[in-house]
Design a protein around this nucleic acid. Structure first.
Lengths: 345, 345
DNA sequence: CCTCCGCGTGGAATCGATTACACGAAGGAT
DNA sequence: ATCCTTCGTGTAATCGATTCCACGCGGAGG
């Protein structure tokens, strides 16, 4: 592969001049510029990004560590992150943590070793050593979706509180009183927050959230199945199961089916995170939709602000309720339209 | 960030010795080794991968350019690729082409600029300039899933031929005679091959595949909807629509629903590529499943073989039919079990 | 006692870029 | 004519690692 020296030789100039032409430096004669560009195309020369990074101490690369690539929510997030980054002249390297803190750390370390300019993380846990080191070392960093309390890093996320209130209002209006939740891991902020928001919303309607109605999941489908089976075994099973992510509701659906029960007639189902497949499930699933695309873009902008020395700020965007048939409403006619409206407030 | 010089100073040895310790070189005294490791931990030193790559001319990184991250098939593929690569000591950088040749080229160029050791591609088209350059330049390369005829690069893929035969046998046994297909882009091998396999299988049962029953899709949901609407407008609409990928069948489902028709009673549906959501759609969708995980791993092994100077060979693995309710069978009881058996041959 | 060998170590070249600095030529001002 | 800019260019240092080569030292063999 041709190097800058080869180009210099071919053009009959020094490497400095070649570099200047490549970087659009003003003080190069028109003649030299022509000869260099000719040599570049003749040799099919492409600058070595590795060498350039070593010298300039910047890679124009962002790292993105997500919790689970197989979760469509994170896939969409990754896509919008890459898009915005590309538009701003950066590349993205994705690390998939599979909800495992050790893997998360592995990726953070690897990315730091490659001297990425900034790091976008959706932490799997409450702060693994590698992550805390990175934050402390001053690597530009932004949390997206999930974050770690007490760590001084901007957070870009959706606030589901009002949407959860809308959901509970919707369920209450349909006559449901015994509502259960499949929570995410307690180590994650989204795992805790969604339970809190749910409990608060219930309280506003004078409803309790008994411990028996809080199932401990891990954001994976299998845990949704397990927890739902537990709910169904209760002397007084819930009328509604709300899953804290889109994968767990799938498991819940499995468990309900396996008992020969019907949704929503025997039990209602809802989920956090809306994905396109929910339109086609049987029945279509009521969900809380995050503005995933905007989240990804905002996170990248905040991170690049930090990378380039500006102050990237935290951003919180509203989530909104999308009513479908899994809770009993007929969305084509009956349900209260104010629910959808209020969620954008 | 601490460099090797700092470590050398801290340990009271030369940088050469530090490097030797770091790389497990034998001829270092026990004493020096101890002092160096102590200095490393004291400073929290991590070698600069950029500098190392520049010197050694290898990045221990693989590039993976996939056609569409939002397609669960490719997400699973990416995951298994990363897993196998990690197990073998390599990192993976993913580029998402979004089925756009220009974006594909952008990613190939960027990856080559970073001097990745090898490239895994599932080409979006029939050979864009960047890709052909890469192949010609001698970059270790392997095609996965799709490939470009005439380019001398190993291919790791699934052969759907026998599974398509099984599918057609299944459909024929259920009494269906008018079978249509939503094809992928003609520029892709999978786009063409699946149509050919379908036509061949039909011929074996004395059935034709009229042009009106071949819809031109682009592997995206929207094209599935459009094509299916065209089928339904035909004077004699098909009894079965077979989509060449999992996204297009979603669009087909939309189109069928929008007309108020039922699956499978009014029209049967099937798809290439099985994904976990198909179990939960209404109705569950009959699909041809690729051994995605094994495909990803085999591709990585073949590529690393090339990278490390061995001869990575092409691999073809069989796909298999997974019967569900979208074609009219009741998989719990009725359908011919030989269909599933034969597909593994 | 001398020579040779091997081991542990350090000095310095190297990878491919960027960039500070110096230098010569040309042109304008005095 | 002399001096000072300005402009275009080249030389060389630098980034952080790896690795070739040489050197000093100690022990073994003659």
């Amino acid at each position: 592969m041709a190097s800058i020296k080869d180009v210099a030789a071919e053009a009959g100039v020094s490497v400095a001049t070649v570099s200047r032409v490549l970087n659009g430096h003003p003080s190069v004669s028109e003649d030299a510029r022509r000869r260099v560009t000719a040599a570049v195309t003749a040799l099919g020369y492409r600058p070595n990004a590795v060498a350039r990074s070593l010298r300039t101490d910047q890679t124009r690369t962002l790292g993105l560590v997500i919790s689970d690539v197989l979760n469509p929510y994170f896939t969409e997030l990754a896509r919008s992150v890459e898009e915005e980054a590309r538009a701003l002249g950066y590349s993205v390297i994705i690390g998939n943590a599979d909800e495992r803190p050790d893997l998360q750390d592995h990726h953070v370390r690897t990315l730091l070793d490659r001297r990425i300019d900034g790091l976008l993380v959706s932490p799997t846990d409450g702060g693994s050593p590698g992550m805390l080191d990175a934050a402390r070392a001053g690597t530009p960093m932004v949390f997206v979706d999930r974050w770690i309390p007490g760590v001084d890093v901007p957070v870009v996320r959706a606030d589901g509180r009002s949407a959860v209130r809308d959901l509970v209002a919707h369920l209450h209006a349909l006559g449901h009183r015994r509502l259960a939740i499949i929570a995410g891991p307690a180590a994650t902020t989204t795992g805790r927050e969604r339970v809190d928001a749910f409990r608060e919303a219930l309280a506003a309607f004078g409803l309790e959230l008994p411990d028996a109605y809080i199932g401990q999941g891990d954001f994976q489908a299998e845990s949704g199945r397990r927890v739902t089976e537990g709910f169904l075994d209760l002397p007084e099973p819930p009328e509604v199961v709300f899953a804290a992510d889109n994968l767990m509701v799938l498991g819940a659906l499995d468990a309900v089916r396996a008992r020969g029960l019907r949704v929503p007639d025997d039990i209602a189902l809802a989920a956090f995170d809306d994905i396109r497949w929910f339109v086609h499930t049987d029945p279509p699933i009521t969900a809380i939709a995050q503005p995933t695309d905007e989240l990804g873009r905002a996170a990248v902008r905040a991170l690049i602000d930090r990378v380039e020395g500006r102050t990237g700020e935290s951003v919180t965007l509203p989530a909104r309720l999308v009513v479908r048939r899994s809770c009993g409403a007929d969305p084509a006619s009956g349900q209260n339209p104010t629910a959808v409206q209020r969620s954008t407030s």
